[in-house]
Structure formats: structure tokens, C-alpha cells
């Protein structure tokens, strides 16, 4: 009996925790439809903040930057990361310790150190050579750097889950090295590559700190815009942008999950 009461207590705690986890997001979403300019009181349903967003060129620009940054960096990261994942798999019998440390580095590095290192580095390079002036380019560079490891790990684990004789079978069935890449490795990897792309995309959209330090004056993304807007004062308009971001990230994450599930 004691046991059942204990479990019931835990269940109550679980639901409280869920409220704790989702309350801030729900509040943001709810007040994005509030008709009055406060998050302290509910004044009725309205879409006025969304309408206002549509006419805000800065926000539209920021959405564009965010998507552009996420797409470009994800494409580069998927290519480079997949190559690393393949190399790691093909040569997994070797001692690759240093390489693995290098690949894990972007994951474990505190993002403030990551962002500031890149900023300081880019500033110096820019001063010496005129290259790498802060903007979308430097942001892409930084994002690719932290996306590569995740792609490499996804691709690597897909390969590890594969019957190793498939590689032999492809050779045995007259596939030349290029044909093996085109007709065996890439098609087999397709679900993993898609899921890696979605994860990279999510990571890019989610990132604030690294973007913040590598961004230029003309390349603010949505999180940077929100950051700036918050510092000027809370406004329901931010609620609307944030709601759009929550919805889109959730959508992409669910898509990625579905791809992963179908693979398994």
C-alpha cells in the first residue's frame, strides 16, 4: 500500500514538473494572441501582433537570415560531417583518438568561449587580411563548426548498424568505387543524411550565443532580433515571433524524429 501511495505521489510530482516545463512556452504562445499590450492580463483574442510582424521589415529580414544561415550551414555540415562519419567507419580499426577528441571539441566547448574565440579570431584575421568581416559568412563558418560533429556521429552510427558484408556484396556485384558511392552508400545513407540535415537545421535555428558573437550589423537572425527587442522591453510582438519559432522548431524536430523512426 505504501508503495502505491509513493507512486501516486510521484505521479503528482511528474505532472507538476510538466507544468513547470511547459508553462513558460505556453505563456509565450498564449500572450501572442493577447489583444492588449501586457503579459500580466488577458485582454481577449487577437492576431494584431502577427499582423504587425508582417509589416516589420527587420523581422522579415531576420527570418530570412535565420533560414538562409540554417540551410547553407546545414548543407555544408552534412557534406563535411558525412565524410568524417564515413572515414571514421571505414578506418574504425585504427587508433583515431586525437581525431575523435577534435570532433567532440565543438560539442563540449562552452558556447560563450566558442563564440568569443571565433569573434576575436575573425576580428584579427579581418584586421590582417580584410577577409572574414562579421556577417552571414562568419556565422555560417561558426555554425558549420558546431554542426559537423552531430552529423558525423549520426552517419557513423548508421554505418555501424549496417551489415559489413554489404560493402563486399557491392564490390562482388561489379560496382566500381564510384558506382558503390552512387548506388549503395548514398542511398543507404539517405535517411541518416536527412535526419542529420534536420538536426543541423534545428541546432542552427536554436543557437543564440555563437550567432550573437559572430554576427555582423546586417546579419541579425531571429534569436538576435528577439534578444535586442527584449532588452528594449517586453512586447507582445516578441511573443508572436517566439511562437512562430517554437512551432517551426517543433515541426522540424518531429520530422527528423519520423525519419529516424522509419529508418529503424
Amino acid at each position: 500500500m505504501q508503495n502505491r501511495r509513493f507512486k501516486k505521489g510521484l505521479a503528482v510530482f511528474w505532472w507538476l514538473t510538466l507544468i513547470f516545463l511547459y508553462a513558460p512556452l505556453l505563456v509565450v504562445m498564449m500572450f501572442s494572441f493577447n489583444s492588449i499590450n501586457t503579459s500580466a492580463r488577458w485582454g481577449g483574442f487577437s492576431l494584431r501582433w502577427y499582423e504587425r510582424l508582417l509589416h516589420n521589415d527587420v523581422v522579415i529580414g531576420a527570418i530570412g537570415h535565420t533560414l538562409l544561415l540554417a540551410v547553407i550551414s546545414s548543407i555544408i555540415a552534412v557534406i563535411l560531417g558525412a565524410m568524417i562519419g564515413y572515414g571514421l567507419y571505414r578506418h574504425r580499426a585504427r587508433k583515431l583518438g586525437l581525431l575523435i577528441v577534435l570532433i567532440y571539441l565543438p560539442i563540449v566547448m562552452p558556447d560563450i568561449v566558442f563564440g568569443i574565440s571565433d569573434m576575436a579570431f575573425f576580428v584579427q584575421i579581418n584586421r590582417l587580411t580584410g577577409l572574414l568581416s562579421p556577417g552571414l559568412g562568419t556565422m555560417v563558418i561558426a555554425h558549420v563548426t558546431f554542426q559537423i560533429p552531430f552529423v558525423a556521429l549520426i552517419v557513423y552510427s548508421r554505418f555501424v548498424g549496417l551489415d559489413a558484408t554489404l560493402f563486399d556484396a557491392a564490390k562482388d556485384l561489379y560496382a566500381s568505387p564510384w558506382q558503390r558511392m552512387l548506388h549503395f552508400i548514398l542511398p543507404t545513407l539517405k535517411p541518416a543524411l536527412l535526419s542529420a540535415f534536420f538536426l543541423s537545421f534545428t541546432l542552427s535555428v536554436d543557437d543564440f550565443v555563437i550567432s550573437f558573437f559572430t554576427a555582423g550589423p546586417e546579419s541579425a537572425t531571429l534569436p538576435i532580433y528577439i534578444w535586442g527587442a527584449i532588452r528594449r522591453g517586453i512586447s507582445p510582438e516578441i511573443n508572436a515571433i517566439a511562437t512562430l519559432m517554437i512551432a517551426s522548431v517543433a515541426l522540424v524536430a518531429v520530422l527528423s524524429l519520423l525519419f529516424n523512426r522509419r529508418r529503424a
Partner: peptide
């Protein structure tokens, strides 16, 4: 891939 030899593998290795 240039040998006219084919193999039936133990695990069958179907793609």
C-alpha cells in the same frame, strides 16, 4: 568488381 565471379554470402547481404 572486374572479376566474373559472384558470391552468395553467409549473411546474404541483401541491400
Amino acid at each position: 568488381h572486374k572479376r566474373s565471379v559472384n558470391t552468395v554470402f553467409q549473411s546474404y547481404a541483401l541491400f
